[in-house]
Nucleic acid binder design. Sequence first.
DNA 1: AAGTAAATTGACAGCGCTGTCAGTACGCCT
DNA 2: AGGCGTACTGACAGCGCTGTCAATTTACTT
Lengths: 336, 336
Amino acid sequence: MAKATIDDVAALAGVSMKTVSRVVNKEPNVRASTREKVQAAIAQLEYRPSQSARSLAANRSYVLGLLYDNPSASYVIDVQEGALQTCRRAGYDLLIHPCRHNEPELADEVLALVRHSRVDGLILTPPLSDITQLVDGLVEAGVPFVRLSPTENKQACPYVQTNDQEAAYDMTCRLLELGHERIGFIAGHPDHRAVAERYQGYLAALKESRIKFDKTLVVQGYNSFDSGRECAAQLLGMNDRPTAIFASNDDMAAGVIIEAHHRGLAMPAELSVAGFDDTPVAHQIYPSLTTVSQPITEMASKAAELLVKQLQGKAVQMPAAIMSCRVIVRDSTGKR
Amino acid sequence: MAKATIDDVAALAGVSMKTVSRVVNKEPNVRASTREKVQAAIAQLEYRPSQSARSLAANRSYVLGLLYDNPSASYVIDVQEGALQTCRRAGYDLLIHPCRHNEPELADEVLALVRHSRVDGLILTPPLSDITQLVDGLVEAGVPFVRLSPTENKQACPYVQTNDQEAAYDMTCRLLELGHERIGFIAGHPDHRAVAERYQGYLAALKESRIKFDKTLVVQGYNSFDSGRECAAQLLGMNDRPTAIFASNDDMAAGVIIEAHHRGLAMPAELSVAGFDDTPVAHQIYPSLTTVSQPITEMASKAAELLVKQLQGKAVQMPAAIMSCRVIVRDSTGKR
DNA sequence: AAGTAAATTGACAGCGCTGTCAGTACGCCT
DNA sequence: AGGCGTACTGACAGCGCTGTCAATTTACTT
């Protein structure tokens, strides 16, 4: 059976091509009885509109682009899943586009992607959400986009974020409550602003406590396992070493745990460790990692929704969705 | 500047639309001087062909579909990366399509995807590579596809696979060489044939050694961390417990390591553990995991290449690419 | 130099759909 | 019953490209 076209459906239903088009696109002003006739014909012929033809005629692709440069496979997969949930509901496809956030030609590359009518809109994930050049380029070109966890220029486009800093604050408070007074902190990659800003939560909690801030306890990390391990070596090599280390993400926390193992430190008895993100590794290591879980899939799904709304011309209120993180207590933290 | 069309280029280059089309599509029989004129015009106008128009006219989408139902984020990401490498080179886009391998409607769902002219061809990853109904459906519908690591029906379509069993054999031999005589084995999920068949390598190595096979040392796992941990509990609870455990994948091996930690077993002194896949967790746990690395990205890239070749009508020799795994020795294995 | 095959080029008709706009049917008013 | 506004429907012209096929030019023969 050759693939049915809109004409076939129109003929079978006894209406015009255009009316079939209206039904398919859920346009208003079609009589209920007509709609049913058309739907019956569609079902009978197993008609599916041709994406290419729709795209050409309507000058949209019905495809969303997902841009990322994130070293965490689980993060990316979760984002993809969330975005796909919305895409499937809304009849869009998802094109994935990994790229390098420090590539100078990034903005051009992405604009090319859009200009060639391959995608109708974009979803940016950290750290791309904070690449000014890219964001500005998109705004200037009038490309619809949404961002996940941006830290600045928030009026540029709708976005979805979590209360990261608050969660980092909570986590620090918990460590303080456990009696830790010297809490090491491994800061996130400066390019990765959303991660880097978790530091503010740490600071806030310390400020609230009576404990005085010791800046030698803060080490600059770069989000990777290896970087976490190096930072841990530095912190644990101090004469007056911290009794707890809070790393800005799980990969670095895993590095801390390994380094502690190699130094023969019992966890949590001699060292408490906390991470952030609740990646799979968090419960696959020993001891299992106390961390913060973000609703990544939902964030991505929500972001895609905001984007689709934008594409449908519906106004999206700017100060967009803010979702909540959740501290997950596992075995890597304990009383001092 | 409005987006340039093929007519604009043709006018500027002083040739016909069709000739521009020939240049763009790298068709033969265009004089070198003409080609250059056209290319200059293309560059000057920053012309990019409209995907939708090409698709509509040529009746292909220039999009490959990537089907997966794999719980391992790192595996999926690597496959995506490899596939994208080829896609970018060949001018294709990649549509990702996660799905459920045990969904009864799977074949219909996928065929719908293809019929709606959204993708020109498909890449299947395990365990989908071995879903007979799906594979047969695709063959019957004449949809071009390639598979990663199929275990059966290999003449159905081109494929790329690794010498898994051989690597499992090698790994087992290494454990035997280290003096282990009771080597526990955690088998892979039966639906996940490629993983499940690693068992054959284990068997082969044992058979070759003088050691007699003890079937109580073989436990059925289901590829997950939790399942690995449960299997380990069973193996380590035996009176005459194994001195080494070889898990069919890293997630399960990580489960083994956790369970061993909880039982206070020193690794590798009291227990050697080996995994398979070299996922990120392998070097993030303590002790770091001896495992087998597969060139996943290259496999996927190669698979996409085979698919593109097929789509271009070039014949692809059936018994396709076989790539090599590599044993990676880390700290989780040692002498008995 | 004429003749033939091969290389190169262009004219044109769609691909299957949507946007525009004009037309027809219907509901409700006086 | 006539008039008017609104709901509904259809005719038609492209969207920007590729396939077909015929026309033209070039290359190579004898």
